[in-house]
């Protein structure tokens, strides 16, 4: 692309317009602003969490077991006397990491193959479609269980399983979006301008689909987090004593019936907030990207 043909002022003014629009969206819908705030907190916890927590997340202290929340232990302690607040904060990196890696993986695989399927049609479309259909024939969480059980009980395999079960979603969205643009006027015009098919796909179609894919990514981040936590809740992937939200809820589950609610509650609420935050961000992004699709 020629830089001179798209002079800087145009891009700057477009950026300003987008920012204005974003500010308008947040003004109209303060919830998106709140979600962004949570996102910043989560990012901070993931980046510097391990260095700022008050306790070693793995250090047990049987004398202080099952303490309810207090000034010393904000979220209380678990059955081994570990500080739940520290464990929840430290777990952020692992939980978000799994989600980010799996979403990036599926974005690359599903997004690209979907765009190619929608644009080229023919056998590409059939192969990608069949693959997506086969995955969709399973209840997704159940398939993830099967994959992790078969490939082996590791965090990497959780990432892979989460990516696989999200594949159809990405492939389908990308396929549909590419397909409706395949014979759009501007694509025909690009052909007349001498663009090769590959250049049209990457230079004309992909940039137009990117915003929608970004929304999709944000929305599936939440789902990926939920899925990973669900798997570890039933004992797959992450193993104790590693701090991870799903496992922590599982560990606290036994104490709910006897009233020690905080062990499961705080990791559960954090998990919920994280998912909530990504879902809201996705909705907000959708409003910015495509005001007509507001629901």
């Amino acid at each position: 692309m020629s830089v001179a043909a798209t002079p800087a002022p145009a891009q700057a003014s477009a950026a300003v317009a987008t920012l204005k629009h974003a500010r308008y969206i947040i003004g109209e819908n303060p919830v998106t602003g709140v979600a962004f705030g949570i996102f910043v907190l989560l990012a901070l916890a993931a980046l510097i969490g391990p260095f700022i927590v008050p306790f070693d997340p793995l250090a047990s202290d049987t004398a202080a077991a099952l303490n309810s929340p207090s000034a010393k232990h904000w979220f209380g302690t678990d059955q081994l006397g570990r500080d739940i607040f520290s464990r929840v904060v430290v777990a952020t990196r692992l939980d978000l990491g799994i989600a980010i890696f799996s979403v990036a993986l599926v974005f690359a695989l599903g997004g690209l193959s979907g765009v190619a399927a929608g644009y080229f049609g023919g056998w590409t479309d059939r192969v990608v479609g069949r693959l997506a259909d086969t995955i969709m024939a399973f209840p997704l969480f159940v398939l993830a269980m099967g994959i992790v059980a078969a490939l082996g009980n590791t965090v990497t395999n959780i990432v892979i399983a989460t990516a696989i079960i999200n594949f159809p979603l990405y492939a389908r969205v990308a396929r549909a979006e590419a397909n409706i643009r395949r014979d759009a006027g501007f694509v025909q015009a690009a052909r007349l301008c001498g663009n090769s098919e590959m250049r049209i796909l990457l230079g004309h179609i992909l940039p137009n689909i990117m915003p929608i894919m970004m929304v999709q990514m944000s929305l599936t981040m939440g789902y990926a987090i939920l899925n990973a936590a669900g798997l570890s809740f039933i004992g797959l992937g992450v193993r104790p004593p590693t701090p991870e939200w799903g496992i922590m809820v599982a560990e606290g589950a036994a104490f709910i019936v006897s009233g020690e609610w905080w062990i499961a509650f705080f990791p559960g609420v954090t998990l919920m907030l994280a998912v909530f935050c990504f879902n809201l961000l996705g909705d907000g992004l959708r409003d910015i990207v495509d005001p007509q699709r507001r629901t």
């Binding site: 043909a5 145009a10 006027g185 501007f186 025909q188 015009a189 690009a190 940039p207």
Partner: peptide
């Protein structure tokens, strides 16, 4: 409308 790429300026 349909024949112009929404992400391209007129000059582009």
């Amino acid at each position: 409308t349909d024949s112009l790429n929404p992400r391209f300026t007129a000059v582009r």
